[in-house]
């Protein structure tokens, strides 16, 4: 099993943002996470990556208990992530953003890292921007950089947070193709997304979050057909 969440909860004071979530993700799977805004999707990501620590519950990564492990160690174990709002290192170039990820997250040698970063830039369509300052990028390029930088850590588990939001249809298709390629190469993917057609064209299972609780996991068709999901997520009264 790549990832196991066992009744994971997170509270900020009286507010419970993640409420007893249990979920297993086998190696090589692509899992989508959906839910309305404020359902606790990004918080769940932060708990998996270690950017936030759980209030209760247990997290296992590749059979190892990582519940109290800091974020940077989880990265080195193979957890790569993108942020919902792109968080580039603005004072570094696009290439240096990736190089930082490869040298620290991937622990590769310098020459290996340079080669890998250039290849990732090519795959994500960012090669022409390699030597541009990340702070000068457009939104689309910032999103591409998020994906590219996450890949540079050499992830076995890749967490993508609304990476397709705000993109045009054409841009979205290109992105989906890239994600499919990454998945086909054996990387386990967990993807939070509101652009459902993009999501369902890649993932094998969908998980639905509402008010921090996991209210359903299953094949995308089944989930989308579920009355509860349609009511909660799509706001359709059935």
């Amino acid at each position: 099993m790549m990832l196991t969440l066992d009744t994971v909860s997170k509270s900020f004071g009286a507010l419970t943002v993640t409420d007893g979530v249990s979920l297993s993700v086998p190696k090589g799977e692509a899992l989508g996470i959906i839910g309305p805004n404020g359902a606790g999707k990004s918080t769940l990501f932060n708990l998996i990556t270690g950017n936030l620590m759980v209030s209760a519950g247990r997290i296992e990564l590749m059979g190892r208990d990582v519940t109290r492990m800091p974020a940077m160690k989880r990265v080195r174990m193979g957890v790569g992530r993108s942020f919902q709002i792109p968080q580039p290192f603005e004072g570094l170039t696009v290439f240096e953003n990736l190089l930082t990820a490869a040298r620290f997250g991937g622990a590769a040698s310098h020459d290996r890292a340079v080669h890998d970063c250039a290849e990732i830039l090519r795959r994500t369509g960012m090669l022409a921007r390699a030597n541009q300052l990340a702070g000068d990028l457009s939104l689309l390029d910032r999103k591409r950089l998020e994906l590219a930088r996450a890949l540079a850590t050499g992830p076995e588990l890749l967490l993508l947070d609304e990476i397709a939001g705000g993109l045009t249809e054409g841009e979205c298709r290109t992105l989906v193709d890239t994600i499919r390629e990454i998945h086909a190469a054996g990387t386990t993917i967990i993807w939070i997304e509101h652009v459902l057609h993009a999501l369902t064209s890649v993932v094998e299972r969908l998980a639905v979050l509402d008010f921090g609780r996991l209210i359903g996991v299953g094949a995308p068709d089944e989930i989308m057909a579920s009355r509860e999901v349609r009511e909660i997520y799509l706001g359709i009264e059935v």
Binding site: N51, M72, R76, F83, L92, L99, T100, A101, F104, T153
Partner: peptide
């Protein structure tokens, strides 16, 4: 050096720096 990259990364965004494996 490698540490120089990490320094600028931490200055620009400590949370993202953690997420690429930098020991902030």
């Amino acid at each position: 050096s490698r540490m120089g990259l990490a320094l600028i990364a931490v200055r620009d965004n400590p949370e993202a720096a953690k997420s690429v494996g930098v020991d902030v």
